[in-house]
Nucleic acid binder design. Structure first.
Lengths: 140, 140
DNA sequence: TTCGTAATTGCAAAAGCTTGCAATAACCCG
DNA sequence: CGGGTTATTGCAAGCTTTTGCAATTACGAA
């Protein structure tokens, strides 16, 4: 995987300080399946670096989000999940009846993105959306 | 406004018990400008009914949401805002740079709704969305 | 290598929201 | 109108996330 280490590299490029906490948080995100929670990152980092604090995890995630290196999505579980941008974009259809999640290709939302840009001059961040509703099975 | 009292009426129709708490919470929502937070509802109700509890407010909002009587939207303020469905649907473009909010007509999202239904059989709840991004002014 | 500055962290408290459980009260029935 | 059933509420604790502040530490300059 060529994206591994990308987050650390880009942080350094932008002049941010490379602390062990940041490096371990970044690699936890990059090593994940792409939908990792703050608590899961924390649990993983604390094994090798016990003095890390959960608020550092949240602050690092906020930073990475603002730099466009990760996206965050609330899938309705009561906690937010994070995804490294380097692993590609997609969306989720979340069924409020059965809780089932269907993945959705990025393409489906590009017409909307275009309309918002043309009609409102608004550059929408549509990189990792959760759309709630009712799935096929539960609609019957 | 003919919608006033609609929430209470529909709750009664569906066989839910009409407690003073529910009635006051419902009328606070209906009397609002359409974007009221749980804490604001609570503050309003407690004036006339001091023994009400904030968790009752949240539970009532959850109920109204499930019955399709209110929609909830996270405008990125760190708290959720509620909107009575009877007051009409719309969406919001939220600028992450300046915090500015532009309203968006419901129509703009109906092509997406149609595609999701046709292509995935997914009945999306697109009644009160917040779309984040960068507004015209902040994009320059 | 040492030092100074400013970014970053840890800690503790707080904000927003949810939940289990026992007490309360709305509503149906006689 | 009175009584029983069960939905609803209040309370307190807990979960996720944010924030202020003082202590720490990364990094450039000397």
């Amino acid at each position: 995987m060529s994206y591994s280490g990308d987050i650390v590299k880009k942080l350094a490029e932008q002049g941010y300080r490379m602390t062990p906490q940041r490096m371990m948080i970044a690699s936890a995100i990059e090593a994940s399946d792409g939908h990792i929670s703050a608590e899961e990152i924390y649990a993983q980092v604390i094994i090798k670096y016990p003095q890390v604090n959960i608020s550092t995890v949240y602050r690092t995630l906020e930073l990475l989000k603002q730099l466009g290196l990760v996206t965050d999505t609330d899938l309705g579980e009561g906690r937010v999940r994070y995804h490294p941008v380097g692993k590609g974009h997609h969306h989720h259809l979340v069924c409020q009846e059965c809780g089932g999640i269907t993945d959705l290709d990025e393409i489906v939302l590009s017409p909307l993105k275009t309309i918002l840009l043309r009609q409102y001059g608004f550059s929408a961040d549509l990189r990792h959306l959760a759309i709630f509703g009712r799935c096929k099975k539960c609609s019957q």
